[in-house]
Write a protein that binds this DNA or RNA. Structure first.
Lengths: 244, 244
DNA sequence: AATTTCATGATAGTATTACTATTATCTTTG
DNA sequence: CAAAGATAATAGTAATACTATCATGAAATT
C-alpha cells in the first residue's frame, strides 16, 4: 500500500496528525504502474475523469483516452490492465478523499451527535468546487461516482476483487460512519445497514434529482443531506435541540 | 401498451377487480415483437433469465442465448433490438409483478400503518419460491434485479429512455409506496425520497449480505425487511403497538 | 562518451461483441 | 396448394478489449 497525500490547504502539522490516524491509501494491485509516479500517469487520471464524465463509462475506451491526451493506447495499458481497474482506482481515490474530509470535519468535535451530523453532511453533500489544486477534479469525480460506482461492484468478480482489497476504502468509510451511529445510540440494532444505506442512498438521491424527479423530494433546496440527517435523527430517536 | 396477465392462483373475479385498478403492462416499445406471442419468445425470456443469472449481464450475449435455446442469434434480434432492451423488459416485468403482489397484499387492509408495513414486506423480502408456474422464475429474476437493475438506468440514455416510458413500472411502484407513507404521516416531508430509498436500499442490502457482510447487519435472520420496517416506523414516529 | 535502461510510441494482430443484411427453409393459414 | 409469416443459416462490419513486438528517444549509469 502506498500512502497517497491529498494536497488540501492545511498546515503540515494538522495534516500529519490526521494522516497518522487514517492512512489514506489505494490498494497497489489496482494499478500496474503507479499513475502518480509520472507525468503521463497524471494525465491519464486527469483526463479519464473528464472523458468518463463526458461520454459515460460504457463508451469510454483507452483508445479514445489516448487520442484525448495525445498518447498511445498501449501506453495506457502499462498503467492499468483494464478500464474496470481504472474505475476501481478512481473511485477508491474518491472514497479516500471523502474519508479524509470526514476525519477532518469531525475531529475535535466533542458532541457525538454533532459529530454524526457533520459526518453525514460530508458524505451526502453535493461537491460544488474543486477543493484541491491537483490533476483530480473532485466535482467531476463526484459525478462519476454517482453515475458509475455501482458498476464497479455489480460484477461476477466482486468476491475475488473484494478479497484483493479493492473495496477497502469504501467499506472503511461506511464502518467509520457505523461506529459514529453506535456512539450516538448504543441500542440501535442496525448501525452498519443504516450507514451503508446513507452512503449508497445519497448517491442514489443525487442521481434521482437529475433524472427521475418524480420519485424523490430532493432538489437544489431540499438536499439529500437534509433528508438523511432528518432520517438519521428520527431513526436514532435524537431529540432535536435548537442549535444547528 | 399491452396488458400483461400474471398467472397467479387467484379466482377470476378477484383478479379482474385488481387488474382494473392497476393495469400491469410493459411499455410496448421495449420490444420489437412481443415475446409472449410465440413459443420462441417465451423461451427467450425463460432462458435469458437463467443465463444472465449464471454468467452475469456483462458476459451475456444473444449468441450465447441462441446456443442455449437451440435457436439463432438473428431470430432473437427480431424480438429485442439489444440486450439492454431485454434487461429493461425483464426488470419491467419484475416491477410489474412486485406491484401486483403489493396491491394484492394491501387491498382491503383498513389500517394505514399495517398497510404500509405489508407493502414494505412485499418490496423488501427475499423471494424464496417460484410462485407462478409460468416461464418466468421469480426467484432467479429477483437475483437479476439485485445484481443488474442499476445498470439499466446508469447510462447516458436515461433521460431519453425515461421519456419513452421504460421506467414507468419502477416509478409507479415507488409512487404507490410514497402515497402510503403520506397516509401514515401527513407531515413527513420526504415521502418520495423515503420510498425510493426503501426500494433501492432493499436491493442494496440484499447485495451486501451476499458480498460485503462487514457493512450490513442483514443476514438470514436479520432481514432487510426488518431493517426497513424499523427504519420507517422510527422515521414516521409510529408508536409500535403490540400487534404484529 | 558510450551504453544500458526505461518509458513511451507505433504498428499489427486476435477473438469477441453487437449488431445488419440477405437468402433459404420451414410452418401455418386461407 | 399457394402465399404469408416466422425462423434459421450465413456472411459481413465496425468497434472493443485487449496482447505482442519492435522502434525511438531521453535519462541514468559506467
Amino acid at each position: 500500500m502506498i500512502v497517497l497525500l491529498l494536497s488540501l490547504q492545511l498546515n503540515v502539522l494538522k495534516m500529519d496528525s490526521l494522516l497518522s490516524n487514517i492512512k489514506i491509501a489505494v490498494p497497489d494491485k489496482i494499478y500496474i504502474k503507479d499513475p502518480e509516479s509520472s507525468d503521463l500517469g497524471k494525465r491519464i487520471i486527469e483526463h479519464s475523469i473528464i472523458l468518463i464524465d463526458e461520454i459515460g463509462f460504457d463508451s469510454f475506451t483507452f483508445k479514445k483516452l489516448g487520442v484525448r491526451i495525445g498518447s498511445n493506447e498501449s501506453s495506457i495499458y502499462r498503467y492499468f490492465e483494464s478500464k474496470h481497474k481504472l474505475l476501481l482506482y478512481l473511485t477508491s481515490r474518491y472514497w479516500a478523499w471523502v474519508e479524509y474530509q470526514l476525519v477532518f470535519a469531525t475531529h475535535n468535535v466533542p458532541d457525538d451527535n454533532t459529530k454524526l451530523t457533520k459526518a453525514i453532511e460530508v458524505i451526502t453533500r453535493t461537491i460544488k468546487e474543486d477543493v484541491t489544486f491537483t490533476h483530480i477534479n473532485e466535482v467531476v469525480l463526484n459525478r462519476i461516482v454517482i453515475n458509475e460506482y455501482s458498476k464497479s461492484y455489480l460484477t461476477k468478480e466482486v468476491d475475488s476483487e473484494n478479497k484483493e482489497g479493492y473495496f477497502v476504502l469504501y467499506k472503511r468509510l461506511i464502518r467509520r460512519l457505523s461506529e459514529m451511529i453506535t456512539k450516538v445510540n448504543k441500542d440501535y440494532q442496525f448501525p452498519s445497514s443504516l450507514a451503508s444505506t446513507i452512503v449508497e442512498g445519497a448517491l442514489h438521491q443525487h442521481f434521482l434529482k437529475s433524472h427521475f424527479i418524480s420519485i424523490t423530494d430532493c432538489n437544489d433546496k431540499v438536499t439529500p443531506t437534509k433528508f438523511f440527517i432528518n432520517l438519521t435523527q428520527n431513526v436514532l430517536n435524537i431529540k432535536t435541540n435548537g442549535s444547528k
